[in-house]
């Protein structure tokens, strides 16, 4: 556990007045507030640090203790014992914030803070307050690309509760869906928060995906490229016969309409599959093949 320099967090030095602290805090809070930095983890961390620094430095008792012990904060326990007989007079919710945002864990204070000032008993912190609507939850769901090919049900455990959800076919990597009412419970008769589920899709298939279109490279023999003919190749969910035109060049692309990925929220509709031919140039030839190539060469090919 490391010492946290709360003055540094607020960009101040130890001589800062209460007004300086308030001003610095407000200025930085405007910059890092989670509501103006949606989905920004760094800003969320910074905002927590600001809240913690402000909770300590804006409270004369806590600031005194912090200043007194500084880097020797581990001895603060003795200070705490000495103070134990005194009646706690910290006012609850003294800060200007009543942040109850959607970012999970925005209320957490560091281990350093907990160690020096104790846990939830302190009121001056930024304890998240649900006043009506429940907290929103965020979760990631990892899927393989093959799992995103068809609509299916899945059971997730979020905050100890099992939730059965439908994963829609065609969902994309990084896409977030909202599941109404599966966040934290509301208070005072308020509605529950929502669950925001972000899909992380891994692809270990030979297919590349962009939206509903799939892309794949298929190697064909030199003779097939020159003379043409039929080949069989894999689509995402089956096999297909392709007719290779005579004189097909390396990098030639063909489109297989409707053989791509399902289009999100458009049941029964699919994107396209694009096949790029890679003509295989043999590195080693048998004596017979070499002879034939030499004969071809004589023809001026």
């Amino acid at each position: 556990m490391e010492f946290i320099d709360y003055y540094k967090v607020l960009g101040l030095d130890k001589s800062a007045t209460a007004s300086d602290i308030k001003k610095a805090y407000r200025k930085l809070a405007r910059k890092y507030h989670p509501d103006v930095n949606p989905d920004d983890k760094d800003a969320e961390v910074k905002f927590k640090q600001l809240n913690e620094a402000h909770a300590v430095l804006s409270d004369p008792e806590k600031r005194k203790k912090y200043d007194q012990y500084g880097k020797d904060w581990e001895h603060a326990e003795e200070f705490e014992k000495a103070k134990a007989r005194q009646q706690r007079s910290y006012s609850s919710g003294s800060g200007p914030f009543t942040y109850s945002g959607s970012g999970a864990g925005a209320e957490d204070f560091s281990e350093f803070f907990e160690s020096m000032f104790g846990g939830g008993g302190f009121g001056g912190g930024r304890q998240r307050q649900t006043r009506f609507r429940g907290q929103d939850y965020n979760a990631d769901l990892e899927l393989h690309l093959r799992d995103a090919f068809s609509t299916h049900k899945r059971t997730l455990t979020v905050n100890g509760k099992n939730i059965r959800i439908t994963v829609p076919a065609g969902i994309e990597d990084g896409q977030t869906i909202k599941i109404n009412g599966h966040g934290g419970p509301g208070v005072n008769g308020g509605p529950a928060g929502d669950l925001y589920l972000t899909f992380r899709i891994h692809n270990t298939t030979p297919f590349k995906r962009e939206g509903a279109n799939l892309y794949k490279e298929v190697e064909i023999p030199l003779t097939k490229a020159v003379l043409g003919g039929e080949i069989t190749t894999d689509t995402f969910d089956g096999k297909v016969k392709l007719s290779v035109k005579p004189g097909t060049g390396n990098g030639t692309r063909v489109k297989l309409k409707g053989k791509g990925f399902p289009i999100y929220k458009k049941s029964g509709q699919f994107g396209d599959l694009f096949i790029t031919y890679q003509v295989h140039i043999p590195e080693q030839l048998t004596p017979e093949q070499e002879k034939l190539f030499k004969e071809l060469e004589k023809t001026g090919l």
Binding site: H33, D35, Y99, S100, S102, F132, R133, P191, G193, D194
Partner: peptide, 19 residues
């Protein structure tokens, strides 16, 4: 509507927290 409540809450936080 309940759907618009999160938005109102966000506006409220910006108003109350950041002035």
């Amino acid at each position: 509507t309940v759907e618009e409540l999160p938005f109102l809450e966000r506006m409220l936080r910006l108003h109350q927290d950041l002035g």
